[in-house]
Amino acid sequence: MNNNELSTKPHYQILDGLRGVAAIIVVLFHLTEPLASSHLDNKVNHGYLAVDFFFLLSGYVIGYAYDDRWDTLTIGGFLRRRFERLQPLVVLGMTLGAIGFYFTDSTIWPLIHTVPVWKLLVVMLIGYTLLPIPLSMDIRGWQEMHPLNSVGWSLFFEYIANILYALGLRKLSNTALSCFVTLTGALLVHFALTNPNGDVTGGWTLNVEHMRIGITRTLFPFFAGLLLSRVARPTRIRHAFGWCSLLVAAVLFMPRVGGATHLWLNGLYEAGCIIVVFPLIVYIGASGVVHSRTEERICQFLGTLSYPLYMTHYVLVYFYVAWVSNHKGITLGQAWPYALLTFSGAIVLAYASLKLYDEPVRAWLRRKLA
């Protein structure tokens, strides 16, 4: 299947824009996270739910783009296209993380002083594949499967969802898929209500607990998005981008629910957002119409920037986190100039990565792998 065949369907510009809105909020979450005294009082308290939103968006778009093309599309062809789209920025993010590794010196990462260059390079090369590294290879001390670019864990589970879709779950009837989504939704609710942390965070460590969390966080939203793409019939909704952006921001900026005494309430809130609110946002976004050239340009810019921003911003956040940790007790009011500088740098780095690296490399891969 060539690229022209895949580009004949109308493009959901508003969904692209919403992906960019969520990516920006992820950056803000990571900038406020080191200033919080605990997971209960982050100023962008539910920013991590953007990952679950991304999974649902991905399932919806994959279903819309590919579900009716399997008469001519092979499993290898589908996975090759996903590789072309996702992998170049995976490689760049890991490379930039390795370049900056020794410069993010801080007391919170004492292991950095002990890591030989050969081990750093091995971790980087493994990171290129997105295969998770074991705890014995942790070179930062945060017990992450990708210590050179923290966000790599979600791409690992994105690939798992894509592979499961290609290998067989795409063949499920709508009834069977509804049963599967219901089951995975029940597992998500159970986890959200019983997790000792009172939330759905986790998935970034190579152990049984985090693998369970990562799979739980991935299966429902991705395949709920796939089901939504099959059964929902978008209408025409005015001002959808503005309303959906406000909804995304409201969900992700919502303060902690229930506090330290009623953790299950926060889990219930997060499960409700993933199971009810996010599909509603995607449906409204898919039903929306771009009303002006300005809105179209905003959605296009946010959409093209979203993935590079997500995959490269943490390279700069490492420097910011090190600075905050070296200035104990600093407040948001004191740190905001450095946070703004990091945020601005992340936008510039993402745009440069898109234009100077991602787009040219993807074009080259399309030619080579066609």
Results as ranks from 00 to 15, higher is better:
288 G>N: 06
244 C>S: 13
276 V>C: 10
242 G>I: 11
142 W>H: 14
233 R>Q: 07
354 L>I: 00
330 I>H: 00
104 T>K: 07
38 S>I: 10
311 M>Y: 02
197 N>S: 08
208 V>W: 14
328 K>H: 00
355 K>L: 09
250 A>K: 04
197 N>E: 11
77 G>V: 01
294 T>H: 08
47 G>L: 05
37 S>V: 14
11 H>K: 15
96 L>T: 14
319 F>E: 05
223 F>T: 11
2 N>L: 12
31 L>T: 15
344 S>F: 03
221 P>D: 15
135 L>E: 15
15 L>Y: 06
358 D>S: 02
32 T>M: 10
284 I>L: 14
130 L>D: 09
106 S>E: 05
363 A>E: 04
88 P>D: 03
133 I>Y: 03
175 T>I: 08
115 V>L: 06
24 I>F: 15
199 D>T: 11
334 Q>S: 05
269 Y>S: 07
120 L>M: 13
317 V>E: 13
128 Y>C: 09
176 A>L: 00
223 F>S: 05
178 S>M: 00
298 I>N: 08
87 Q>K: 03
180 F>D: 02
103 F>H: 12
257 V>K: 03
85 R>E: 05
96 L>K: 11
218 T>K: 05
183 L>V: 12
272 G>M: 09
217 R>S: 15
268 L>T: 06
189 V>A: 06
192 A>Q: 11
367 R>P: 00
337 P>W: 04
135 L>M: 14
146 H>L: 07
65 A>D: 00
230 R>K: 07
215 I>E: 10
139 I>E: 12
335 A>K: 01
254 M>D: 02
288 G>R: 11
46 H>S: 14
18 L>G: 15
265 L>T: 00
82 R>W: 08
220 F>A: 11
293 R>A: 07
9 K>N: 11
38 S>E: 09
25 I>M: 05
127 G>N: 10
72 T>Q: 06
184 T>L: 03
233 R>S: 07
223 F>P: 06
34 P>M: 06
199 D>N: 15
187 L>M: 02
312 T>V: 07
185 G>M: 02
241 F>Q: 04
35 L>W: 08
187 L>E: 02
110 P>H: 12
101 F>H: 08
292 S>G: 04
226 L>I: 13
44 V>T: 06
131 L>W: 05
206 L>W: 09
100 G>D: 10
303 G>W: 07
94 M>S: 12
1 M>G: 11
